[in-house]
Every structure is written in structure tokens, then in C-alpha cells.
Design a protein around this nucleic acid. Structure first.
Lengths: 373, 373
DNA sequence: GGAGTTTGTTAGCCCCCTGTACTAACCGGG
DNA sequence: CCCGGTTAGTACAGGGGGCTAACAAACTCC
């Protein structure tokens, strides 16, 4: 599908068409069935133009007619149009786990059609890359509809061109993952950080606001940031890397990075498990989680204030995050940032489960190929 | 000048023209003289299209021909085009001072053409509004070229429509400043927070990167944030309000907001002056500034990490900010954020002087009217 | 002075949205 | 049963915008 306009680039008449096409498709995707006349009223385009664009979308099978509008009112009954979630499929990979690479084929509604995974068994570098490649190829063979693209959510730092600049867990540095796979499989490939993918999944399949900070707790701690629905990458593509922000300069908790008192020393699942196993009473366990929540809150408070974020979503093991940890984090943010000025801040846990990165990877592909953010 | 495309809106062919026009004008503004052929090469537009757009720009006097290119090479000599800084003027206001409202007429190069100010003398609410209005009108009479628009930088929280939602210093709440003035003077008016204006000034007239965090120290502490050259406003238009983030939960330094240990209790000019006057030796004075810098650094560290900001600019009284304060802030950020991942971070003082908000207000008008960000 | 190069313009074409006018299909009331 | 009123969707001509192709102008170098 055709190139979209990037800022700082020229615009030709046909890009107007791309824009309007995305506008209509987005409306159908996010807000359910509309008739052509509905779309014309909502967008300000004329019914003529809408009909023209819609006929393209019908030809591409991205939209289907689903019968006339229910109910009875004067005038010719409207033919309703619906986004066709099953017309295309995506291949999605989640490389953020410590023991296996997860992959799936999903339709555009985020429903898993086929699933496959491979044990990592300590592979790094070229071995890891080979496993990823063959997993993608295996899934590619299970696709049962036109393929929209391949999406990959990986830990580490990924640039706009799909180059993994640095992913210590995988032993990768400057791996041109997108170029490699898109050439090999001759289809569009999108690679992004797993936290960014997660944030996009919350936006597409959850109930997220357009301005959302998503915090992902797992092997490490990372954040994905959406402003106005758009992922923020940062000047060196390292936005969201908050795991090694020092919470307490006085602390002596050692971190793998060499510093002490990093957020990760309280909040990675491994460290939390260690701390919990050292606790004997329920009160002690709650205390461990509260301290972790306070650490998170004190890092998030300045970010929330500076960006005036209204929603924070936590993603990770529910058993650990819910309860004292989430409560303490929210309390700390409330105490440390001026909520009267910034408005209500909501902190909640993600409800999307284990497939969240896979669905985020699908959302990435849809965002790039169809302009559905 | 014609409406620009906002996201989520339909696009018509003529908006493509607006986009391309802004693209060319921006290139001439930011990168100096180019010929038509240069512009065609740089933008990817054909020479034909460039010529067509340029003839519009010449007709509007926004661009002037400044003679053939110097030097000698084969082919027809190129006619160089230059952005015409003197063709239009703006009226700019700076309401961020404690004792007076400053105003000026500036050309598009940010040069002050005329200047006027009015003592506040304790005015608030309607009185303050009357003073602002008459200051704008007085300046409006001193304009000696076509007026591009009126720009106002004010403390407080301002929405996209130029409504001052809340400005405690001025005693304003829900003041429709933009609507009021644009109706009265029949010309475009842009209203924005003073820190955002300052950030835009640094970008337009200073040497700022596209991703910049500007911290403004004065009566209070506020920040202006630019990502990809675009100001970030936040979901409730309160982005950048970091003055009341709590630095040290254990501290008992009282703040006007009712909490204790807010950033402002270390960093407002008033509090710094108080703390300095209590210090007797140079070492004690340096200590005061170092502590203030550390407070700032510990608030900025999570923000810098989350957004992967590469440049921080401090604006305010040089005498206070330079030296120990800036050094301590930078050191704290370096210690608290993982700089290997986030790349080099630069912290510097603004060099634009007292007119920075006025020039920022001019930049706001240019951004809105001409698309020059 | 001719060949080669670069600049800028003119002419004809295609893309895309718009306004107007038309047909299709439904409702309700006399 | 038919006719006015209403809504949905579709031709058709028109104008804005950028593109390609072709060309004239002006300079350098041999």
C-alpha cells in the first residue's frame, strides 16, 4: 500500500487520497460500522468522494458491506460498511521473554489464528537471529489470508528503520532485522521495542487514551509512551528506558548496570521474587510490594507532571503488580505531583494478558500499512 | 493565510499546496538562501512546482530575489531567493514578569522594532486584562509593516484555543484572551504558556535541537517541551508544570501549594535569594546553588530518561543559574540516568537574554501563520 | 564558435476533491 | 393508491495541484 507523508516531505495530490483513505478506514476500525453518508458527515468530505474511496477499500477487501441499517426511518436505507478484520493477517513475534520466543499469526482484529514458539536455550547473537528467522518462516507458512506484514516486538533499542541498535538480552548490536526479513520474505516488516508495542496494543485493543504511559515490568523495566496516539522514540531511540533511573541515591542495592539504587533493583520480577522470598509474614510481603510501588511512583511523578499524562498502564505479572504495588505507586504520584493542575490521573493494570506484545506487533503493522494508529 | 491540516481532518488538494509552500518557506528560513533549482533538489518537488509556489511567495513578499549566485560555474546562473524578515511584523507580549508587562513590535527575524511596557502595580483579574489590552493596542499603532499576528506568552495554563484556563499570578481563570483580542483587533492572535514560548524561541533563534527540554526559572519553575520541533501541551494543557513536583518527601521546606519539598522551594529566584542571603561564606553560597541544582537534576533525570532528551536549556537569571547550579544539575542527571544508553546529554544556558519570551511569541505567530516551526 | 550544463518557464496530462443534478428507495398522509 | 418529503448513493463537469516533456536562456570550457 502506498507511501504515507512523513513530515518534512513534499506532498502530491495522491497523498491526499492516502490520507483520506486512512481517515475513513480509521473511523470504521475504531468506531464500528458507518454508512457512506455517515462517513461523509463525520469527515466533512462529500458523499461523492467518500463513495470513491470506499469503492477502493471494497476492492481491497478491507471493508465489507454488511446490509442495510437496522431500524426504520424516512429515506433510502443506508448500506452499512464494516472494517473487515479477517481479510488480512499478520505474523507477529514477541522476543521479550527470558526462555522462549513467542510467535503467532493474527488477523486484523488481534485474534490469534495460529501459534508457535521456540525455546531460546541460551542462544544469543547469530544463533538467536537464526531461531527468530526460522520462527518467522514457519509462521509465514501458516498464513491463510493475504499477509499485511510482519511485526516484531523486541527488548532493546530499535531505530526507525528497524535496526536493533542494542539488545543485551539477545546479544544483538546493530542488527538490520527489518531489512533482513523484508528481503527474505518479500513483505513489509516492522520492528519496535516491546514496551512501545505494548503501548500500541493498549491503544488499539484496550481502552487507552491518546496520551498514555505504559510501564512494562518483566526481566527489566521499560516504558512505552504515546502522545496524541503516536509513539515517542526519543532522539537516540532510547525513550522509555527508565529501568536504570536512580530512585534513591543513598541506596546500596546493586544493579547489573554498575550503579546502585536503580528502579530495576526494586521492580524487576526477579528482584521482587527474591525480596518476597526473604519476607516471612504477609505484612512483610506487602511491605516489599509497597516499597517497589513507591520506587516506581517516585520515578513516574516527574514524568507525569512534565507531560501532563492522564493515564498510566502497568503491564506484567498481575499477581505482583495488583494490590499494594499499584496502590503505592498511585499514592506516591499523587503525593509528589500537583494533581489539581494536572487533572485526574488514572493508573490501571493492563487486561490484555500474555498476547499483548503479539497484538501490539499486529497494531504496529496496521499502523504502518493502513494508517490505523 | 490558509488553514493547515490538523490530524483527523480531511485533506483537499489545496492543502497539499499549503504544505509544500510551508516546506519551501521553512527551508529558506532555517537554512538561508537557495535558488529555485536548489529547493527542487532538496524537497523532491519538480522545478516547475517550485517555481509556481515561489511566485506566490514573491507575491506575498515573504521571499525576495537577492541576485544571482556568487561564484562561477557552468550553466545559467541561479537567482537566489531569501526569506524576507522585514516584510511583516508581529506584536508580542511577555506577561511572565512580576512587576511589569513587557511588549514589543518585532519583525520576522526577531528584531525589536518598537518597545513598550506597563507597570502592573498589583493589578489582577479584569484590571490586568485591561492593561494587557491597552498595551496591545498601543503597540498595534506602532506597527510599520503588514501585521502577521499577535503573540502572547503568559504564565499559567493555556489551551489550544488561546483560553487562559488558570493563571494565579494574574488572577485569571478561563479568560478567552485569543478570542477577545482577535475580535477587537481583527487579526490572528496566539496565546501560549511562557515556557513554551521560550522553548520555541530557542528553537527558532537559538541553536536548539528538535527534541529539547527548556526549564524556565523565575517567579516559579516551569518547563517547555519540544519533541520533533512540536510543543507538547499534555492532556490538560498542563505539560511542563514541574515546579510542584516533590523532590524530597522528607523535607520540610514549605511551599505556597501546601505541600513540602517541592522543586520550587529550592529553585524559584525568590527562594534562592533568601537562601543566598542566609549564607555568609562563598562556600556556603556555592552549597546553596549546588543543592538547588541537585534538586533540579533529580526531577529532570526521570524525564530525560523517559523521553531520551538530548538537550536541556536553562532560562533565567544567568548570575544564579551558571556555575554551581548548572554543574550540579548536569552531574545529578548524569549520575541518575544511564547516559550510555541515552547518548550525550547537553545542558546549557539560554543566550537569548531578556527578550526571549517576546521572540518566542513571534515564533508562535510565525509557526501558526507560516508553518515555520 | 560549438558542445555541454544548469536554470527557469510553457504546455499538456493525470489525480483528487467539489458542486450540482439526478436516480433509488423509504416514510407518512390524504 | 398515490404523492410530497426525506435520505442514500451516483454521474458529470470544473478547478486546484503536481508531473513529464520540451524548450529557451545564459553560462563555462575547449
Amino acid at each position: 500500500m502506498p507511501a504515507r507523508v512523513r513530515s518534512g516531505e513534499k506532498v502530491r495530490p495522491e497523498q491526499a487520497r492516502v490520507h483520506n483513505r486512512e481517515l475513513l478506514l480509521r473511523m470504521l476500525y475504531r468506531e464500528g460500522p458507518h454508512s457512506r453518508a455517515d462517513l461523509a458527515r463525520r469527515t466533512g468530505l462529500t458523499r461523492v468522494s467518500v463513495s470513491d474511496v470506499v469503492s477502493d477499500l471494497l476492492a481491497d477487501d478491507l471493508v465489507v458491506e454488511v446490509g442495510t441499517r437496522a431500524g426504520t426511518r424516512p429515506g433510502k436505507p443506508a448500506m452499512m460498511l464494516e472494517f473487515n478484520e479477517r481479510a488480512y493477517q499478520t505474523v507477529a513475534l514477541d522476543l521479550s521473554h527470558s526462555t522462549l520466543y513467542r510467535g503467532a499469526v493474527l488477523d486484523l482484529g488481534g485474534t490469534v489464528v495460529a501459534r508457535q514458539q521456540v525455546e531460546i536455550e541460551g542462544s544469543t547473537g547469530a544463533d538467536a537471529l537464526a531461531k527468530v528467522t526460522s520462527l518467522v518462516e514457519a509462521l509465514h507458512r501458516q498464513v491463510t489470508a493475504p499477509l499485511l506484514g510482519i511485526g516484531i516486538g523486541t527488548p532493546g533499542i530499535v531505530d526507525l528503520g528497524g535496526v536493533v541498535l542494542s539488545a543485551p538480552n539477545l546479544g544483538w548490536q546493530d542488527i538490520h532485522l527489518q531489512a533482513l526479513l523484508s528481503e527474505r520474505l518479500a513483505c513489509p516488516v516492522v520492528v519496535s521495542n516491546d514496551a512501545n508495542a505494548t503501548a500500541l496494543a493498549e491503544r488499539s485493543y484496550g481502552e487507552s487514551a491518546a496520551d498514555t504511559l505504559l510501564v512494562r515490568v518483566g526481566v527489566g523495566v521499560g516504558a512505552g509512551l504515546l502522545l496524541g496516539g503516536t509513539p515517542i522514540l526519543g532522539s537516540r531511540f532510547a525513550a522509555g528506558e527508565i529501568g536504570h533511573v536512580v530512585v534513591d541515591a543513598g541506596s546500596e542495592r546493586p544493579c547489573v548496570c554498575g550503579k546502585t539504587g536503580c528502579l530495576e533493583t526494586w521492580l524487576s520480577t526477579r528482584r521482587i521474587q527474591e525480596d518476597l522470598s526473604g519476607a516471612r509474614t504477609d505484612a512483610e510481603r506487602a511491605r516489599v510490594l509497597t516499597v517497589a510501588g513507591e520506587a516506581l511512583g517516585s520515578v513516574l511523578a516527574p514524568i507525569v507532571a512534565a507531560l501532563n499524562i492522564s493515564e498510566i498502564v502497568l503491564s506484567g505479572p498481575h499477581r505482583v503488580l495488583e494490590g499494594p504495588l499499584a496502590t503505592a505507586a498511585m499514592e506516591t504520584i499523587r503525593r509528589r505531583a500537583l494533581t489539581e493542575v494536572h487533572g485526574d490521573i488514572v493508573l490501571r493494570l493492563s487486561e490484555l494478558g500474555d498476547d499483548i506484545v503479539l497484538r501490539g506487533a499486529t497494531a504496529m503493522v496496521m499502523s504502518q500499512q493502513l494508517g490505523i494508529a
